[in-house]
Design a binder for these strands. Structure first.
Lengths: 203, 203, 203, 203
DNA sequence: GATGAATGAGCATTCATTCAT
DNA sequence: GATGAATGAATGCTCATTCAT
């Protein structure tokens, strides 16, 4: 399943894209405030700037909106992550720079990431799988970057580290009640990177 | 707010405890399968072994059930964590043993922990705060254990490490789709502990 | 149907009377505040000083409570009215004195009278009829007093006047929002009595 | 608060009016039979000719229906009263003619008036006040008519008389069990008007 | 006689979805 | 393509009444 396998009765592709983007923006705004379940389709339509009837011209069920949203969030993270990944010179420093950037991306997208932690389970198994694959892909990219930049790290270690880094990024968002008081973002990044460097060097 | 500030019209304290435990068990079973929002109060009553009327003799709103559940989960983790924490001899080895146990506890409670990640946000701010305080307390315990067992680690580092460890525990549950294929629990624990030891030694 | 035709499983007559009086007092307090429909049987039991189980030992349905209440209110008005009615000397002055007293009784029982205006319709037809008969009896007493004290007034006029007087009494209670600002009770009574006297004299 | 401050999600004003009228008619039919509290919203929807969902598109709570009903009843009485009030020649005869008409209006609306006596108290204080103001306005109109047609009557007397007349009208409806046997409507009106005329002339 | 825990039918209200215009 | 009125199944919650202790 992909984004454009969602049923619609509209022919004009350009319009579909435009409407769905409106919908995603509107829905994200609302999901941030109230979560998926407490948000009604009417509210989504209104926030998106069109009528409930029109909403249902572009999706089939409320869950489709959630899918569109989650998918869009993943794509956004992925796109921003990708733009930093092209390896100029495969050094530890370069790895650190990428991870630093990643932490800043998730800082910027804290609320979107919280949505994902809370709502992915509400997707159908099938759709969930599609979305998780995207996450796996991203983790895999990071894993490979680790292996490239720190060739001595084993594949298994690289994989686990990639997961650790990913979750440490998210954690900055979903545990802000625990972390934002003792640390600034810069401090947080600096510490996590230091732990990682130490680990890589001394494995 | 504490567990027994939830309104009930029942006078027999022993019965309240018994019925609420039935309720918590029933609700957890259902929340694992369908989440809080998709579970109806009628289903909770049925699964708990009594009627909808009886359910509402022991709580006031559906959210009370969620609170009871989340509170019970935290208490269970905390209790099991506490039982391992009494310091015999404050060494790195002892620290590792405690964390190892912690990882095994959360492995055992994976689904309960997923419930928390998904549903804590559905609690009222006020109740949420009460619950998060419990988590803070646990993290704090771990932080202090780190400082005791590894006195050279700074307070800030101990705090961040405690948070990292906590989330790495949870992560084993909520990212099983990413971790359970490449790692067994033993491998997972062994790797995470090794990273930690390296970091502590080389900070 | 009478008061003691209401089913009960209790044998001790004295106890029945005691409990029912508690119940009536409790219910009136609550009905004044919230009306019959918004008051629960649990509240009535509590306000009466015993348990819901006990309440149902002395009545069969919630409507029985309403009946007991309405019946008690009528009896109280009637008793107080009766105590003034024994004719010493059948003059217009005496008639006016009785009516004056009646107005003061209903002033004293405003809220009870409002209960009746609002809730009698909630009784079963059968019970309603029993209660209305009590009102008819009272009106009839007044009618006869009028005829005795003002023999020239026709039977029909006496009947209509009696009804007018009754309702003017109630009106002081249920239209206080219209009457209590422009008139004191004394002024109200004085005016109504004057209109009546004029009418009787000039018919 | 006015009629069209009641929340609705419908945009078509004409439709709102149409549906609300259906609703008012349906509700009055049911309230006459069973009163407000014993009538369910589903019954109201059905009697009005649409589904429960549609009902709630035009109101927010069940109490809104009661308000709509009470408001409509007042408006109807007021409209019919107003249509008779334009003073051609300010004489006692004219006053009597207006009051005669008023009695015939309330005869026609007996059951609606009973609804008001029973249910106004169920409105929120705020809404209740709005409705009572309408009644005050009507009484005030009558009071002024009395003063115009019988200039010797004092303001206070005119006010009390206006209230008496109003309640005598209602009384014909809510005490039919006491009045409809001894009197026809014509007799009732004739007698009440005579008492009034006598009083005015001899004050 | 008194108690209060248990019951479940019943109610107000919501909201995803459809479809005529 | 867009609109928004209509629908009714579903849901949280209440409360009169019963009955075992």
């Amino acid at each position: 399943m992909t984004n454009n396998e969602i049923m619609t009765s509209i022919k004009d592709e350009r319009l579909i894209e435009k409407r769905r983007n409106q919908m995603i923006q509107g829905a994200i705004t609302l999901f941030k405030k109230k979560g998926f379940h407490r948000t009604t389709t009417r509210e989504i339509a209104k926030e998106s700037g069109f009528s409930i009837g029109t909403l249902y011209e572009y999706i089939r069920t409320k869950e489709d909106v959630l899918f569109l949203v989650v998918d869009a969030i993943y794509d956004k993270v992925k796109k921003r992550l990708m733009s930093m990944m092209h390896i100029e010179d495969p050094s530890i420093e370069h790895l650190m720079r990428v991870i630093d950037s990643y932490f800043r991306v998730v800082d910027d997208m804290q609320e979107e990431i919280i949505i994902m932690y809370q709502e992915v389970k509400s997707l159908q198994k099938h759709t969930q799988e599609y979305v998780l694959q995207k996450e796996r892909d991203m983790v895999h990219m990071l894993q490979q970057l680790i292996q490239t930049c720190a060739p001595k790290v084993s594949k298994a270690d690289a994989e686990l580290m990639a997961n650790n880094i990913f979750v440490q990024g998210h954690m900055w968002g979903f545990r802000r009640w625990a972390l934002h008081k003792p640390f600034t973002l810069d401090e947080y990044i600096e510490r996590q990177l230091e732990y990682l460097q130490i680990t890589i060097k001394n494995l």
